[in-house]
Write a protein that binds this DNA or RNA. Structure first.
Lengths: 219, 219
DNA sequence: ATCTTAAAATTGACACTGTCAACATTAAGT
DNA sequence: ACTTAATGTTGACAGTGTCAATTTTAAGAT
C-alpha cells in the first residue's frame, strides 16, 4: 500500500478501471462518469483524462481487458492433451458463456452497443478479431477432419457465436419470460439464479445438442 | 397539414417519436435529448415532458411501436392457408431478421440494453412477452406434429431467438470481421451492403439448415 | 547534488443534459 | 359563458463531457 497523500497517485489508471467496474456492476453503466470517477477515487474531476482520452477510451480499456481474459480462459480450457477438435470447439463455446456469466460488465462492453462501432480503439478491434478468428480456426479444423459439415465456416462461426451470445445474454439479464405459457418447464433464468455451475453445463449440453444435431425430428 | 403556429401542437407525441427515430438513425441514439427534441420540433425544451414522463418513457414508446409492427409483420407472413407448422415457424424467424434490418433503431431498442431492464413500461414488457409466446406456441405445434424433436420447447425457443437475434445484430452493424482468415468466402456483411433481399434469404436458408439439421457431419 | 523536462494532477470555464416547479395559454365540456 | 384539465413555457438546479491554462512533482541528464 502506498501512503495515499502523494500528489501523484501511482497507479491511477488501474484504480479507475477497477472503480468503474465496481460502479457499473453496482449501479449500472449509466452511473459511470469521468468526474464522479475522479472524485470517488479521491482525485480531481479531470484527473482521469490524464489516463484516458475519453470516456469511450475508458470503456474500451475495460472491453480490451475482457478480451484478454477471455482468451486466457479459452486457452487454459484447451491446454490438456488429447482433446478432439470438437471438444476444443465446445470448450470455446462454454468458455464464452461462463465468462459472460462471471464477468457480465466486461461482457456487455465487449459485445453490446454501449461502445459505438466507430469509436472502438484499434487495439480493441484487433482483440475482437483475434477472438473471432480463434473460433473460426477451431471450426476449420473440425471440418478438415470431417467432423463438421463442409458448410461455409464463416457462417458456422457466426451461428455459433449467435447461439452462445444469445444464451449468455438471456442468462445474464433474465430477459426470459413466458414460463407461464408452459408451466412446469424449468426456466433458464432459474438455473442461473441458483447459480450452480452444473446448471450452466446442463443448459450448454442442451443447446449444444440442438446446434450439433438440429432440432428436426428424424423420422 | 395543420397551420403550424397554434399554441397547441396537435399531435406532438407522434411527431416527437418520429423525430427521435430520425435523429437516432442519422446521428445515433446518444444524440437524442429531450431538450433537443423539443427545439427541433419547434416547441419549448420541456414540452416533451407533457407526453413522456421520462426520456426512458420515450424510448419505451418506440420499442412498443416496434413490437406491434413486428407482430403485424409476422401475422401477415402467416396469413395464407396451407402453411405447414414448420413453414410458419420459419416465417417467424425470417420476419424477425427482415424486421431488424428494415428497422434497426426499433430493433435495437426492443432487444438491446439501452432501455434498462427494470425501467421497462408494463406495456412494453407485455408486448415482449407476447412476442416470445408466439414463437413458443409455433414450436409447440411443430412438436405435437412430430416435426420438431421433443426437447424442452422453452430452450428451443431461446436457441431460435438467439440465432435470429445474433444474425440480425451481426448483419445490422457489420460486427463481422476476419474475412481475411478465409479469403474468398463471402462475408455476411457484404450481403447486406449490397442490400438485396435475396441475400438475406440466402443467409437465412443457410442458418436455418444449421439450426434444423445441425452442423455435425453424419458419416 | 542540481537542473531540466515531461508526466501527472488541478482549477476554471463552456456548453450541454434531465428534470422539477411555477406559471401561461387554450381547447373542451358544463 | 365559465371552469377545468391538458398542453406548452420559462426559470432553476444539479449533473455531465471535455478543453485550456496552470501547478506540482518524479525521473533522467549534467
Amino acid at each position: 500500500m502506498v501512503t495515499k497523500k502523494s500528489y501523484h497517485h501511482g497507479d491511477l489508471r488501474r484504480e479507475l478501471i477497477k472503480t468503474a467496474l465496481q460502479i457499473i456492476s453496482e449501479d449500472g453503466l449509466e452511473k459511470v462518469s469521468m468526474r464522479g470517477l475522479g472524485q470517488r477515487v479521491g482525485v480531481s474531476r479531470t484527473a482521469p483524462y490524464r489516463h484516458f482520452s475519453d470516456k469511450n477510451d475508458l470503456l474500451c480499456a475495460i472491453a480490451e481487458e475482457g478480451f484478454k481474459n477471455l482468451a486466457n480462459k479459452i486457452s487454459n480450457s484447451n491446454k490438456q492433451q488429447d482433446l478432439s477438435p470438437l471438444e476444443k470447439l465446445k470448450n470455446i463455446g462454454i468458455s464464452y458463456i461462463e465468462f459472460a456469466i462471471a464477468n457480465p460488465v466486461h461482457y456487455r462492453l465487449m459485445f453490446g452497443n454501449e461502445i459505438l462501432k466507430n469509436n472502438k480503439t484499434p487495439e480493441l478491434v484487433k482483440l475482437a478479431e483475434e477472438s473471432f478468428n480463434g473460433t473460426l480456426f477451431a471450426i476449420n479444423v473440425c471440418q478438415e477432419e470431417k467432423i463438421i459439415r463442409p458448410l461455409n465456416p464463416y457462417i458456422i462461426a457466426n451461428a455459433l457465436w449467435s447461439m452462445t451470445h444469445g444464451i449468455s445474454t438471456l442468462l445474464n439479464d433474465g430477459q426470459i419470460q413466458a414460463a407461464n405459457a408452459f408451466k412446469g418447464l424449468p426456466a433458464l433464468t432459474q438455473a442461473v439464479a441458483d447459480s450452480g455451475k452444473a446448471d450452466i453445463n446442463k443448459i450448454f449440453t442442451y443447446v449444444t445438442d440442438i446446434l450439433m444435431n438440429g432440432f428436426i425430428e428424424k423420422s
